[in-house]
């Protein structure tokens, strides 16, 4: 086993300990120091697309050199001195948000963030194409992490967008809607009824919980999850609430703990 090195660094004049390999953002999050992010998600690898998490770094050995880095990517180092908010950082974030507001003038999320930095109307030319997508790439990354790899970016430069391959319902889409849930601006639309989920041009039939009848996930996703995990498909046919209830009953009867309160089941997203 490798022993993990402990690193000390300074954020906004306070000292913190961190494990080697953590990023500045990891430490800041742990310590409750606010840094705005749009393309970061703890479950996924960071790529540094949105540039909003910029912080300023310097080091006693750097002879006064300091610079802006993306905190979601920059790994902590011994003696690093980080500033998460000053005029330079503020201006940088303001410019980024000004640009994002030009791209997505109708996004409430961007409007709100931009307003925090004093931008209510973009100073750039507004995008003619109606979109809420800021190209952070979270949807593509979560889809890949899921193992479906159904969507990706298409084109480049100002024409870049998140697209369906050959503009058709993606053959690899399993209808999990992870892309829609992770999208920071709500740019990906989907529609749920108890019977079907409509997303990316597909209409997926929903599987219903065998005990309570509530819709769990699309059939195609269930097949995918069963195959990926090697578990019996039947395992997925009970919703999270009912399966917790079942396990609680099993534990109760096994230990004869009828009287012991194990709490009520909670709904878990899958």
């Amino acid at each position: 086993m490798t022993t993990e090195k402990t690193i000390s660094l300074e954020i906004n004049g306070r000292f913190f300990q961190a494990r080697e390999g953590m990023t500045i953002l990891d430490v800041a999050k742990r310590e409750g120091i606010p840094i705005p992010t749009l393309c970061y998600h703890e479950a996924l690898e960071s790529v540094g697309n949105c540039r909003l998490c910029m912080v300023e770094i310097t080091h006693p050995d750097w002879k006064g050199w300091k610079g802006l880095v993306t905190s979601c990517l920059y790994p902590v180092e011994e003696g690093l001195q980080v500033t998460t908010d000053n005029k330079t950082i503020w201006n940088t974030r303001r410019t980024i948000l000004d640009l994002l507001l030009a791209r997505c003038p109708d996004s409430d999320v961007i409007q709100k963030l931009a307003a925090e930095y004093g931008v209510t109307v973009t100073s750039y030319r507004k995008n003619d194409v109606e979109t809420k997508c800021i190209l952070c790439g979270l949807c593509v990354r979560v889809c890949a992490a899921k193992g479906a790899n159904a969507i990706s970016s298409a084109g480049r430069g100002i024409e870049k967008m998140i697209a369906r391959p050959f503009d058709q319902p993606p053959p690899d889409c399993i209808g999990c809607a992870s892309c829609a849930h992770i999208c920071p601006t709500g740019a990906i639309e989907y529609e749920d009824t108890p019977e079907v989920r409509k997303i990316w041009g597909h209409s997926f039939k929903m599987v219903k919980c065998e005990s309570c009848g509530r819709p769990i996930m699309p059939e195609k996703q269930l097949e995918f999850e069963a195959e990926k995990s090697g578990l019996d498909p039947a395992y997925f046919k009970t919703c999270s609430v009912c399966s917790q209830r079942k396990s609680i009953d099993t534990i109760r009867s096994a230990f004869d703990m009828k009287a012991v309160g194990l709490g009520e089941p909670v709904e878990v997203a899958r």
Partner: peptide
């Protein structure tokens, strides 16, 4: 042709489309 390619190289069609449009 891209469909055949993806099957052969075991590449998701989304990735091939991304490269082809890039």
């Amino acid at each position: 042709a891209v469909e055949l390619l993806c099957e052969h190289l075991n590449v998701p069609i989304s990735k091939a489309f991304s490269a082809a449009t890039f």
